[in-house]
Amino acid sequence: MSNDPIHQFHINKIVPLEVGGLDLSFTNSSLFMVATVAATTGFLMLATSGRGMVPTKLQSIAELAYEFVAGMLRDAAGSHGLKFFPLVFSLFMFILVGNLFGMFPYFFTITSHLIVTAALALLVFGTVLAVGFMRHGLGFLKLFVPSGVPGWLLPLVVAIEVISFLSRPLSHSVRLFANMLAGHITLKVFTGFVVSLSSLGVLGIAGAVLPLALAVGLTALEFLVAFLQAYVFAMLTCMYINDALHPGGH
C-alpha cells in the first residue's frame, strides 16, 4: 500500500495516442469518463426502457433524478430555463456519478482534476455568455447594473459586479475540484495512519482505532460531499442560466 496521498491522482496512459504533437492518450481518467458515461447512460436507458405507466423501481430512480433536476432548474430560472434542462441534467449526472465512482477504492476521480472541472465551468460560463448576448444583445450588460443603486455608487457597483461575474467560472470549478481533491487526500491520509500504525505492534493497533473510526466517518461524509458538490454545481449552473435569461432580474 503506497502511503502517498497524491498517488491516487496520477494519470496513467493506457493507450498512448499522439495527434499533431499533442498527447491525447487514453488514460485512466479517460477510462473513468467513459465508465461514468456508459454506466449512467446504460442505467438510464435500462430504467426508462419500460416506459411504464406505473414505474418500476429503476424507473422511479430515473424519474426522481429527472424531476429533481427539473425542479431545481424551474425554481432557479423559471420555465424558460427548461430549454437548458439537458445541459443541467447532464452536468449533474456526470459529476454525481463521476464523484461516486471516485469513492471506490483504486478508482480514479475524474472531478479531482482542475482541468476537468474548469472545462465544465467554462462550458456553463460560455453558454451563459452566448445565451445572454443572443437573447438580449447588449441588454445583457444590464446584468452588471443593479437597479436602485445611487448614481455616484454605480461605477463601484458595476466594477464589483463585473469582477464577480468573471470570477464565477473560477469559483465554480475550484469548489468542485478542491472538495474532491481534499476529501480524497484526507481519506487517504487517515487510512494511511491506520496501516502504518497497525504495523507497529499491539500499541499501534490500539492507536489505529481512532483514525479508522475517523476514516469510516469521513467516508460517509465524502459520499455526502460527492452528492452535494454535484448538486451545488448544478444549482449554480441554474442560477447562472437565470442571469442569462433575465439579466435585469436582480
Binding site: L22, D23, F26, S30
Partner: peptide, 9 residues
Amino acid sequence: TFPSQLVWL
C-alpha cells in the same frame, strides 16, 4: 495531461 483530459472530456 490537459489535452488528453480535455479531449476525452
